[in-house]
Nucleic acid binder design. Structure first.
Length: 258
DNA sequence: TAGGCCATCTGGTCCT
DNA sequence: AGGACCAGATGGCCTA
């Protein structure tokens, strides 16, 4: 049953995920690297779980593991699959850690589907904020700097602009208002009228404001404004609140190829 | 008790 | 051939 040791992060759980490897991308950050390290340590520690079958599931092949070679192979495959799912769950936990929702011992954690949908909306919201910040920077510096910063193919703000000696107070204030809309201050971001309700709903799909069925939401998550509730601190998925998909040009470094 | 969520097993498929 | 990935099936736990 210890056949799966040594695999570690030799292959990503999502090998088709092509990412920008530059500094600051998700897969180059600390969380992902520490996850890989912890994963190796977890393999040795997790070997004893193989026969436990705690959460449920089927146990029918566990009666006589030494019966033949086929059963040994089956156990190996089961162990690998179990480890793969554990890796997936760890990645999901890592994602939950950076999601802007109430976390704590008294709060039930987000379900997987809710985590994924919230992550998507959060990315869209941050993309919109980034776009807005670029426009503000362009307004402050004006002229060529604005043109430069608005170039979609090069969304990098050049720090060594000649106007760097200009007074920065308006810019700093603008940046502060934007920073306030990041996870620690998201409650100031939502312009929705219904944000005062349901402060501590459970973090289920309904907590995210999804009244529609999950299937319907996955089909067309961008056009369900009338079915969403709005909560403080949550990136709202409705068409009134979320940034338009046009801002997703900054996400083009992430692409799924299959 | 029904429904949602989850962990596990299992067989198939694809890739290296 | 072996491993990764995927989807279906199954059963346990929890909540409304």
């Amino acid at each position: 049953m210890d056949s799966d040791s040594g695999s570690g992060c030799s292959r990503s759980s999502s090998p088709d995920l092509v990412v920008d490897d530059s500094a600051g991308s998700f897969f180059s950050n600390k969380i992902f690297q520490t996850y890989c390290q912890e994963n190796r340590a977890d393999e040795e520690a997790g070997q004893g779980r193989t026969e436990r079958c705690s959460g449920g599931g089927k146990t029918k092949t566990r009666s006589d593991p030494n019966k033949n070679e086929g059963q040994d192979l089956r156990l190996k495959v089961n162990s690998r699959e179990r480890k793969r799912m554990h890796d997936l769950n760890q990645a999901m936990d890592s994602l939950r850690e950076v999601m802007p929702y109430a976390q704590g011992p008294s709060v039930r954690k987000l379900s997987k589907i809710s985590t994924l949908m919230l992550a998507r909306n959060y990315i869209l919201m941050l993309s919109g904020s980034l776009d807005e910040m670029k426009k503000l920077v362009g307004d402050v510096y004006g002229g060529g700097a604005a043109i430069q910063s608005r170039t979609a193919a090069h969304p990098v703000i050049t720090p060594a602009a000649p106007a760097a000696h200009l007074p920065l107070h308006p810019l700093a204030q603008s940046l502060h208002s934007l920073v306030a809309s990041t996870p620690s201050g998201l409650q100031h971001h939502s312009p929705c009228p219904a944000t005062a309700s349901a402060m501590h709903s459970p973090p289920s799909a309904s907590f995210l404001g999804f009244h529609a069925s999950v299937q319907g939401l996955m089909k067309d998550p961008l056009h369900l404004a009338s079915t969403y509730r709005h909560f403080p601190g949550m990136p709202c998925p409705c068409s009134l609140c979320q940034p338009l998909p046009t801002t997703t040009s900054t996400l083009h470094s992430l692409s799924m190829i299959k």
